[in-house]
Write a protein that binds this DNA or RNA. Structure first.
Length: 238
DNA sequence: GCGACAG
DNA sequence: ATCTTGTCGC
């Protein structure tokens, strides 16, 4: 994908927070996505003691969810994991992975929050601005706000509230399984985001874009598919 | 001051 | 996120 100007990631935590406060104004909570034919999932993995991050992006056809492309990028990081500043740890590697992506996904799912973040700029929102593309945050746990419990059935949802505002939705993607926390990343409505998460869920807690990215990120870390600049294009089949 | 705290 | 084997529930 073509990326526009990307700001520096060589920042201190205090500078990172100031940047988030400045960028939050650029997040768009609405948008007409039109016909969707391609979705993507982005994720990262790393080893316990290492500072090497393995980021991946997996593109899938929609609504069939067939994987059409997988790319990865492995980079060194010095920024530690700090709740609320995840983008500054995983962002550089993810950006490189997106640069290697040939596909042009209509929407991208990220592992983490969108606007359901202390400063309204979780990794899905931040990356959405840099990519200028619709994005959705699909987190496995809550970072900000109060989550209400959805019903036990697949497809049930309930709001994530903060100061009386709905900042996201808990979504039951699998019956009797802990819900995922969905919030708008950028250029999409919460309603559409939730619909897409459910439309891409196939019997697992994580929707396919996110699940496939998760699996591939682990493969890259263990077997190394990204030592350099490798892009894997698939023609069909899983 | 204390607790909470995406991945 | 990662380190790890078996185990309990659907």
């Amino acid at each position: 994908m073509e990326l526009g100007d990307v700001h520096s990631f060589d920042l201190t935590p205090a500078e990172a927070i100031r940047l988030q406060e400045a960028l939050r104004a650029r997040v768009r909570l609405s948008g007409d996505i039109g016909e969707i034919s391609l979705v993507a999932g982005a994720d990262a993995s790393y080893e316990k003691g290492s500072d090497e991050i393995h980021a991946v992006v997996v593109a899938l056809g929609y609504p069939d969810l067939t994987v059409v492309e997988r790319v990865s990028a492995s980079t060194e990081t010095s920024f530690p994991y700090i709740p609320g500043l995840l983008t500054f740890r995983e962002g550089p590697a993810l950006i490189e992975a997106f640069r290697r992506l040939r596909s042009e996904p209509d929407v991208v799912f990220f592992d983490g929050q969108g606007i359901a973040h202390p400063r309204g700029l979780g990794i899905a929102s931040h990356m959405g601005i840099l990519l200028d593309r619709p994005t959705v945050g699909v987190a496995k746990s809550l970072l900000s706000g109060t989550a209400t419990e959805p019903g036990p059935g697949m497809g049930s949802t309930a709001p994530i509230l903060r100061d009386g505002e709905t900042i996201g939705m808990t979504v039951r993607t699998k019956e009797k399984t802990k819900p995922v926390y969905v919030s708008v990343g950028h250029r999409i409505t919460l309603s559409t985001a939730v619909d897409l998460v459910l439309a891409t869920s196939r019997g697992y807690r994580l929707p396919e874009p996110t699940r496939q990215a998760h699996l591939f990120a682990n493969t890259v870390r263990r077997e190394g598919s990204g030592e350099g600049r490798q892009t894997t294009l698939l023609s069909g089949g899983g």
